[in-house]
Design a protein around this nucleic acid. Structure first.
Length: 570
RNA sequence: UGGGCUGUGGUGCAAUCGGUAGCACGUCUGACUCUGGAUCAGAAGGUUCCAGGUUCGAGUCCUGGCAGCCCAGCCA
């Protein structure tokens, strides 16, 4: 049967509100249909997954509409910004998979242009030099419910303003002594419009312009101008800038220059993590984590080190959508995207996290067999490999229970299970540490007829365990990560509490003595694997030639563990 | 009685000009399986913030409330 030509079309994929605005603009012929966006980070910290949402939005829009997207550093505050952040941001955006071609821009490149524009505004009587101190400026601004009052310097003449502004630039005045302000409306209900500061005096070296300037533009003054100079059509930013849009528009109109459209969307929040730059900085500075790239951090460098792929981050950003509602995404959604991606591409290997020694009593003493193992059942082209099997093995400690509860399918005394790709084994005896009672070794027998894992008599087994041959195993270290915080919303604390109280003491668990199959001996940092039945792991740069270190990116979905947890919770 | 924005299953996002609420994640079943993975099939879950109004018909329009977020840096 063939599809009739007039079959009802599948609903067109829905468009988010930004796309709808752009669609309408193009339909109206605005900007000649051109779409040009930008991602404008301030180089004062590392990028995190919240930034990824913005990056995917801005660069994604450019791709969808055949337009362009600039990478632009909004570097107007030399006190907070550093070269190291510029480098990390460039690396992270590239890693995410986006290309700005030759359009790597810096706000600081336009400092000269901005100065000239400020002079233009002074000449138009729309800006003035103000001698009020910071404290006085605040007092004059008024409050949310009461209007401000005009600065006594508001009506200075153009010539005097010009002279003072030139001298501000020349370095004649100390920090904080004067500002250049826009002359708008001290009674505006929007505080941003109450004669906002355009320039402040800052005798500070800049990571790019060095000592060239001692006055620096404020965000509101600089940003629209940067957008305008770059002929940005749609200037996308987060919700907190909504109140700034009238000012954005005012500056551009006052100047009479190309006028991009500012559009605001809700930033990303994730459960069990913090996203504010300030808090992330504190985690690093107070050594609450190992650094910006600690695999528990929501930074792109942390996620990368943990083993998260750029593809899964992009899929995640697609999936969560773009809107104006302030929402918090369940971290499970991210994990799902990671698993979805890694399931298709990560080669499977066997690694035992908490080894329990198993001796196959009826297996020949010095015999070694090379068994065939599938590299990736999701990808036949990944082929197979050989895994050595011998008399003494390690299995996962939790795969054995002396007194198995109902629905525990794994190994127990007298029970038969399959060793993946190998043989059926039956547990014959349990050896315990005499003093602690801890199970330290299992004595088992195997059925030679089940070689490869199939039983010729059609006998079924309820479980398949992963394993590693003792004498062939490589020693590895495994680092397990859990949520960085114990609460979905780390900011929620008792009265007077601190968000740090919600840090999860068990967010990192180091297992120094794990065993893995020999194929992992030379795995290079950054390589990802699935440890069968355990999860996805990525080789950490801390690895040495003697010992590889693996980060658990994310566990496999585990209905048994979930059931256990649920039972324990009850 | 400062201003701006936002309210749709547990979570996030849809629903063209008003046409009778859909997708994903999560949760729970079941099937299948040499990963308790993956896959497949299914289920539960909604006074669309509330109250009025317009209309044959309202998540969409009107009026009035309520709730949440943002704003008083010479930060961005």
């Amino acid at each position: 049967m063939s599809t009739p030509p007039t079959a009802p079309q599948k609903k067109a994929p829905s468009r988010n509100f930004v796309q709808q605005i752009i669609d309408a603009d193009r339909k109206a012929g605005k900007n000649g249909g051109r779409v040009h966006t930008r991602f404008p980070p301030e180089p004062n910290g590392y990028l995190h997954i919240g930034h990824a949402k913005s990056i995917c939005l801005n660069f994604g829009l450019a791709v969808q509409y055949g337009g362009k997207c600039n990478l632009r550093f909004d570097d107007t505050n030399p006190i907070k910004e550093e070269e190291q952040y510029v480098r990390s941001i460039i690396e992270d955006v590239r890693w995410l998979g986006f290309d700005w071609e030759d359009r790597l821009c810096y706000g600081s490149d336009y400092f000269g242009k901005m100065f000239d524009c400020a002079v233009d505004l002074i000449n138009k009587g729309k800006a003035y030099v103000c001698d009020l101190t910071a404290d006085q400026t605040r007092e004059y601004r008024g409050t949310l419910t009461s209007p401000g009052k005009n600065s006594p310097f508001r009506d200075r003449g153009v010539e005097e303003n010009l002279d003072l502004f030139e001298r501000m630039r020349a370095g004649e005045f100390p920090d904080g002594s004067r500002t250049l302000r826009a002359k708008i409306d001290m009674a505006s209900p929007n505080l941003n419009m109450r004669d906002p500061v355009m320039y402040r005096i800052l005798h500070a070296g800049h990571h790019r312009t060095s000592e060239e300037w001692c006055i620096y533009p404020m965000y509101d003054w600089a940003h629209g101008l940067e957008d305008s100079v770059e002929r940005i059509t749609h200037s996308i930013c987060t919700l907190e800038f909504e109140n700034h849009r009238p000012l954005y528009d005012w500056f551009l109109d006052a100047l009479g220059v190309f006028h991009p459209q500012q559009i605001e969307f809700a930033r990303l929040e994730l459960t069990y993590t913090v996203m504010s730059k300030r808090k992330l900085l504190e985690l690093v500075q107070e050594k609450l984590v190992g650094g910006w790239d600690d695999p528990r951090m929501p930074t792109l460098s942390g996620l990368r080190r943990r083993g998260v792929t750029p593809e899964s981050i992009r899929a995640f950003c697609d999936r969560i959508g773009v809107a104006k509602f302030n929402s918090t995404i369940d971290i499970a959604t991210l994990q799902n995207c990671v698993r979805e991606d890694l399931n298709k591409r990560a080669p499977r290997v066997m690694g035992v996290l908490r080894p329990l020694r198993v001796v196959i009593e009826n297996y020949p003493e010095n015999e070694v067999e090379e068994l065939d193992a599938v590299n990736n059942p999701e990808d036949p082209s990944a082929g197979t490999r050989k895994v050595p099997f011998s008399r003494v093995l390690y299995i996962e400690h939790e795969d054995f229970m002396e007194e198995p509860p109902r629905k525990f399918f794994r190994l127990a005394l007298g029970r038969e299970v399959r060793l993946r790709y190998a043989y059926f084994i039956t547990c014959r005896d349990v050896i315990k540490d005499e003093s602690t009672g801890e199970v330290v070794e299992l004595r088992c027998s195997y059925d030679p007829a089940t070689r490869g894992g199939d039983s010729p008599d059609g006998r079924k087994v309820k479980a398949t365990l992963h394993w590693v041959s003792e004498k062939h195993a490589v020693d590895i270290e495994v680092r397990l990560y859990n949520h960085l915080f114990t609460k979905e919303v780390p900011d929620s604390t008792e009265e007077g509490g601190d968000w740090r109280e919600n840090l999860n003491p068990e967010s990192l668990e180091v297992l120094p003595s794990c065993k893995a199959e020999p194929s992992l001996a030379n795995a290079q940092p950054g390589t990802r694997f699935q440890f069968e039945r355990k999860g996805y792991f990525c080789v950490d740069p801390d690895s040495t030639s003697e010992k590889r270190v693996f980060n658990r990116t994310v566990s496999l979905r585990d209905s048994w563990a979930r059931a256990q947890k649920k039972a324990a919770g009850k």
